[in-house]
């Protein structure tokens, strides 16, 4: 589709990373392979490689974030880039400056890469269409649309534990309706060849027409988890726990919380993932979050390597294929 060519340059190389949708499998695999090479950087005494030396990366966050911004910042610094963090939520946008004007100002500072988080779906794509041809845009989460680096670090984690995507059953559990992570995970899992993807949650948290993305819909954990290799939990936002969508965090835990007993439905070697931060006793029982099937902390570690891979590929300093 024409609209997706914006992510790739004329040679099919990654230019912007806005969504996992419509990217070829070879490119997603290349991200994972590059990330594999970068994982060793973090173990060295000097945790730096010179791939982005002399480049300026601007973390442009229109929405508060500590974890994602920190891992992007670390990834850029380990690539030897100069990093600038801009918390727009607290500055220009509040003064009524338009997104287009903010961008013009920042571009005038000769930025090479924008890492963007924005509350509006499509904002990074809008920015990618505005910036000059030498500038790359990495989506660090937009509205309910996409969070592609989170999805790729999840893919990285799955591959570490499960090797072959084409044999897997994966369940995504929770608030799919408001989740950009879930959408990006679904597209990536599809492209990497996962034959069975399930979404599990109450009808208020599964969006209309989600089947069109190629997933099976389950409204009970008992059926949804049966025989799966991977359980991907989603965070339930505080403001949704007691709202018109759900009566209480307590009832949610009672019906859709991941407990050791429910996890038994999955394969014995199933892994449990969560993008964090977790709500213990709401979407997940501490015994599961801290249990031996949990790979939640490994996800965080992988996040830096995956972001290094994506940033260096978009800047043309890492391999585009395996």
């Amino acid at each position: 589709m024409a609209q997706d060519s914006i992510q790739l340059d004329s040679q099919g190389r990654l230019k912007h990373f806005l969504t996992t949708e419509h990217l070829p499998r070879s490119l997603l695999t290349a991200i994972l392979d590059n990330a594999e090479r970068f994982t060793v950087v973090g173990d060295r005494a000097v945790k730096k490689v010179p791939l982005l030396r002399g480049k300026t990366v601007v973390n442009l966050f229109f929405e508060p974030s500590t974890r994602t911004r920190t891992t992007f910042e670390l990834a850029a610094k380990r690539l030897s880039a100069d990093v600038m963090n801009l918390n727009i939520e607290a500055s220009a946008a509040k003064k009524g400056e338009s997104l287009a004007d903010t961008l013009r100002t920042l571009e005038a500072m000769q930025t090479d890469m924008f890492v963007v988080r924005h509350h509006e779906s499509g904002a990074p794509e809008f920015i990618a269409r505005q910036v000059g041809p030498e500038v790359s845009v990495i989506n660090a989460g937009d509205g309910r649309h996409a969070h592609p680096t989170q999805a790729m670090l999840d893919m990285f984690t799955i591959r570490r534990y499960k090797r072959d995507f084409t044999q897997l059953k994966v369940a995504i559990v929770g608030d799919v309706a408001h989740s950009r992570v879930a959408r990006s995970e679904i597209h990536a899992l599809k492209t990497l060849g996962v034959p069975e993807i399930r979404v599990v949650g109450p009808k208020t948290l599964l969006p209309r027409g989600i089947e069109a993305l190629g997933v099976d819909v389950h409204h009970s954990l008992e059926t949804g988890l049966a025989g799966v290799d991977v359980v991907m939990m989603l965070r339930l936002q505080q403001e949704r726990m007691q709202s018109a969508l759900l009566p209480s965090g307590h009832e949610y835990f009672h019906t859709f919380g991941l407990t050791p007993a429910r996890l038994k439905r999955a394969k014995p070697d199933a892994i449990v993932m969560h993008p964090g931060p977790i709500n213990r006793g709401v979407e997940i029982d501490s015994a599961v979050a801290d249990g031996k099937q949990s790979v939640i902390l490994q996800q965080v570690t992988h996040g830096i390597a995956v972001r290094m891979a994506v940033m260096s590929m978009a800047m043309g300093t890492a391999a585009q294929a395996s």
Binding site: G122, G209, E211
Partner: peptide, 15 residues
């Protein structure tokens, strides 16, 4: 419009 397209794009829908 709230439907498969709004779900894919992650845009809030008007049913």
């Amino acid at each position: 419009h709230e439907g498969a397209v709004s779900t894919r794009l992650g845009l809030p829908g008007i049913p």
